[in-house]
Design a binder for these strands. Structure first.
Lengths: 344, 344
DNA sequence: AGAGACATTGGCATCGATAACATTCTCTGC
DNA sequence: GCAGAGAATGTTATCGATGCCAATGTCTCT
């Protein structure tokens, strides 16, 4: 027989009944054969598959979905940025979903405000996703968000917990403590901090961890500066810190900002790490090639995405009590941007 | 009346007939009212909207799609990487699609081989997308790819042209010529090149542009080195170039590799730009904060994504002859990593 | 041999919305 | 005052696959 799509039917794509006719069975049997249902004779299944192949048949997703009520699609709400972290998490999500036979529909939002997030969630709901991964820091919930997440299994990454949502977080505070402690261990009297924007949960958590570490060691806590994750904001804050004589160690809440900080320090004639040590956060690929290479906190982003999907699919398949919030451990990567405190 | 979802019907989500009943009209009228059809009295439309609101009704996408044959979804095939460029293009696509009322379904592929791309395309086809944006460099086509792209309007970004595909490209060769010429203008005798991996179209185009510029100026063309876009590969190639005495100018095919190159040069005791000038490609956000800040080629990635969608929607709505291939101009951004050639 | 247990298959209603066609109603112009 | 255009709405068939139930067919056990 021909390879594909021969034996035609007026140009329109072949349907299940067409396959059934060619295979000499009922449409129902075709459905079962294709779904891998056990009660179909091997011989029959073979006939069906042959017919499918001959006609170049593909199941119609819309019809399937309508009839079965299942879409085999999960939705991801994510912030539209070029941040390494978001891209990495999304990678992990897509891989794992694909392997499990689920499609991924993404709804990006340009801002973090409640309304924008509601919108993204709505769009996903309209597409009939079976589960949602909220990969945005969710500051304020709203009744609408609560409602949407209640009616669809949802896993939140790195956010605050709403009632209906399982949560998956990287322990930011712990990581920040580790970073800070690393600097203290090197003999620095205290550690300064440049945080992310106030409205991000991660910012607060990292700031808290930093502060906790300092307090635990009985050191003074300098006033934190605030950036917006961008290298530019790091640069501007770096210029400020370069003017303050006491500064010997800085914990920066993201690698990109750290690049900016280091550049500002250089321009001010300060050497890193000889005069000032810098620790970043994220371990972006370029961190190793900064000069000096950047000591930072590596976060298992892809793993996180993968975990989120696993979690979500379990919830979809066996709706039950929420699994325990689970957190994943970040890791300190020591490179060349940190050294023992300069002698005073 | 209550706000939402009161007046319930056995827990199942409200359908169009439910809305129709509440509004006291036929289901068809509801459909028309919601679709913004002109021939509906204002009063009627208002009644419908009120009922929709009261029941918390949402259109069922699967049913819509089945019935109308339209999915209002476009598919994007993209390579799974954390490269800035891909993320930026995707951003542009998503924004524009959203504004035009289309959903975006992404199919990532982990490799560039034909089979992987066929797979990604299939997955999208199964979801019934109305159009496809191929945002991967497509080296070898295949009959299956031809077939899939023929049956669905497709726009290729930065790829080679298949018969059924409209193409949208950044003029890489031109950009590479500009970059190379910039270095020649600064008095460098010749320019070395670190390219991307051989199987990427962009690599070849950038390399060709570089070579053309050198030949046009009657300079010798040094053997090009090959990287894999990663900073690490730039570093390794940088170590090699640092050993070659004549090298005074390097055109690197991506910013990330350029970071690696600069670091390698530093380690070898060479100063940038005093001893060696470096030009990158992409203008990632960090380029400005490299030390020295990186001269590079800025590409309008987001704009590109947006353009792709516009293009695609036009083709979906008015299938006709393929629009002319269109290319967008990149721009040279001069920063501190390039300077006049050192005196010999 | 007869009765049930089980495997395999087909028939038909159904999911929720839309398209095509039919119908009613309201004007306009002669 | 009436034909006929055109607006507003309703009726019915249909999209393609699946779920439920019934109808066979096959096997095993007494």
């Amino acid at each position: 027989m021909g390879k594909h799509g021969d034996a035609d039917l007026g140009g329109r794509p072949p349907g299940m009944t067409d396959v059934a006719r060619v295979a000499g069975v009922s449409a129902q049997t075709v459905s079962r054969a294709l779904a891998g249902h056990p009660n179909v004779q091997e011989k029959t299944r073979a006939k069906v598959l042959a017919a499918v192949d001959q006609l170049g048949y593909r199941r119609n997703n819309a019809a399937r979905m309508l009839s079965s009520g299942r879409s085999r699609t999960i939705g991801v709400v994510t912030l539209q940025t070029n941040f390494y972290s978001r891209a990495a998490v999304t990678s992990g999500i897509e891989n794992t979903a694909r392997e499990s036979g689920y499609a991924v529909s993404t709804a990006t939002t340009t801002s973090l405000d409640t309304y924008a997030i509601e919108n993204a969630l709505s769009r996903l709901a309209d597409q009939g996703v079976e589960g949602i991964i909220l990969s945005v820091p969710l500051i304020h919930s709203s009744s609408r968000i609560e409602q949407l997440t209640r009616s669809t299994p949802t896993v939140t990454i790195d956010g605050s917990r709403t009632d209906a949502t399982a949560i998956l977080a990287i322990d930011q505070a712990q990581a920040a403590r580790t970073a800070t402690q690393h600097l203290l261990d090197l003999g620095h009297e205290t550690v300064w901090h440049i945080s992310g924007p106030a409205e991000w949960l991660e910012s607060a958590q990292r700031r808290d961890g930093w502060q906790a570490a300092l307090e635990a060691a009985g050191r003074t806590v300098p006033p934190p500066l605030e950036g917006d994750w961008s290298p530019g904001s790091g640069y501007r804050n770096g210029l400020v810190l370069a003017r303050i004589p006491d500064v010997t160690a800085i914990f920066v809440a993201s690698d990109e900002m750290a690049f900016g900080v280091i550049r500002a320090l250089h321009e001010a004639g300060l050497r890193v790490p000889d005069d000032i040590s810098v620790v970043g956060f994220d371990d972006i690929e370029l961190a190793e090639y900064c000069s000096p290479s950047l000591t930072t906190i590596a976060q298992p982003f892809e793993h996180m995405g993968a975990l989120a999907v696993t979690h979500l699919l379990r919830r979809i398949e066996a709706p039950g009590p929420l699994p325990e919030p689970r957190s994943v451990e970040p890791r300190l990567v020591v490179r060349a941007s940190t050294a023992t405190a300069p002698r005073r």
